[in-house]
Design a protein around this nucleic acid. Structure first.
Lengths: 187, 187
DNA sequence: GAACGGCGGAACGCAACCGTTACGTCCTGG
DNA sequence: CCAGGACGTAACGGTTGCGTTCCGCCGTTC
């Protein structure tokens, strides 16, 4: 019986508000104002700020990166980096993710939610990616998928979400080359 | 005439409070409580929360990483990674840095301060590191120092400050191997 | 021993936000 | 045509924090 358009307005407002002021300063009243909605409409759906944010965020983050299989490691890598870099250059996402990550380090519930929504999936993608490459003989058998994920996501995350420096045109290509060489070396 | 011990107590309290609740929820009253100090003592030194945090943080962050020169690229790399990983595993630092980074994306003053205190210095270290290695012939001439910094700091930052996963014993060694191979490949 | 000034503590008025409640409106289904 | 329920608005009492002010205490300086 809850109206869908209202719910959607609230969800949007929460994401925007998260991006603008961060979780620490997010207030229900501001969300209601931004959504053009009464506080009652919010409290009818969620019982407090934490529950609301967790539900909304985990819902959005749940729809995540597909598992690539292009037939070659270089292709998989290129596709994955494109997808991730596009996601991390999204205005809202690049504001919200670092903020929630920081918040997660002091709030176990947020940590757990993000863990489920992001990290687990990432590692699964990484495992598959490396597994395929090893099976094809493109990477040595001992290649560590965990290190691989760090080498892949770390620099991108660092640059796009932390340092907030734009990507030069050939950056992703260089990264593919670099990461490939790195992983071959650590087998 | 301001008492030094009081000032020091406040500085410590600010750092701790930043780590515990983050910038967004940091309150002058909580800082005063934690420092065992009157609010007046704080307002006698700084005129508001932002000014106080900026001054204290930039002071702490100013004392930063030395420029390594061990005579070989592998040695430089090992030393640098050790220093950085130790810093990022420090309880207070690993809480405060991601929090302020997230805050910086919405507060230009914080962004500028962090830029000065951290990023500029990092890039200088990176430039020197790569420059030395190129001069010694350990890396190809075209090696991009910016990409190098990303490849070095990204994975460490990602793992220690974001994912908060502990480092296996051989992790840094693997990283050195991987990054060296990566940089040689992109020349 | 008196003046000075930083100190902690307490209280101020103001603002924002919490979570809740009461009310009147509007839409929908029966 | 009427009942039900979700809606926005407004107000509630309570909490927290702001930045300021005033007080009495105490160590320093002259």
């Amino acid at each position: 019986m809850l109206r869908g358009d209202i719910t959607r307005a609230i969800r949007d407002a929460v994401m925007t508000e998260l991006a603008v002021v961060g979780y620490g300063r997010l207030s229900i009243e501001a969300v209601a104002r931004r959504a053009g909605v009464g506080k009652t409409a919010i409290y009818r759906r969620w019982s407090n700020k934490l529950e609301m944010v967790l539900e909304i965020v985990s819902d959005v983050a749940g729809r995540s990166v597909p598992l690539p299989d292009t037939g070659s490691f270089a292709g998989d890598l290129q596709l994955l980096l494109m997808i991730v870099s596009r996601a991390l250059q999204h205005r809202i996402a690049s504001q919200i993710i670092p903020d929630l990550m920081a918040e997660a380090s002091r709030n176990p519930q947020i940590a757990e939610t993000l863990q489920k929504a992001l990290r687990t999936h990432q590692q699964a993608v990484g495992d598959k990616l490396i597994g395929q490459a090893v099976a094809r003989g493109e990477l040595p058998a001992g290649t560590d998928p965990e290190l691989a994920v760090d080498l892949l996501l770390g620099p991108l995350y660092w640059r796009l979400a932390v340092a907030r420096t734009p990507l030069p045109d050939d950056y992703l290509d260089k990264m593919i080359e670099a990461v490939t060489a790195a992983l071959k070396a650590t087998g």
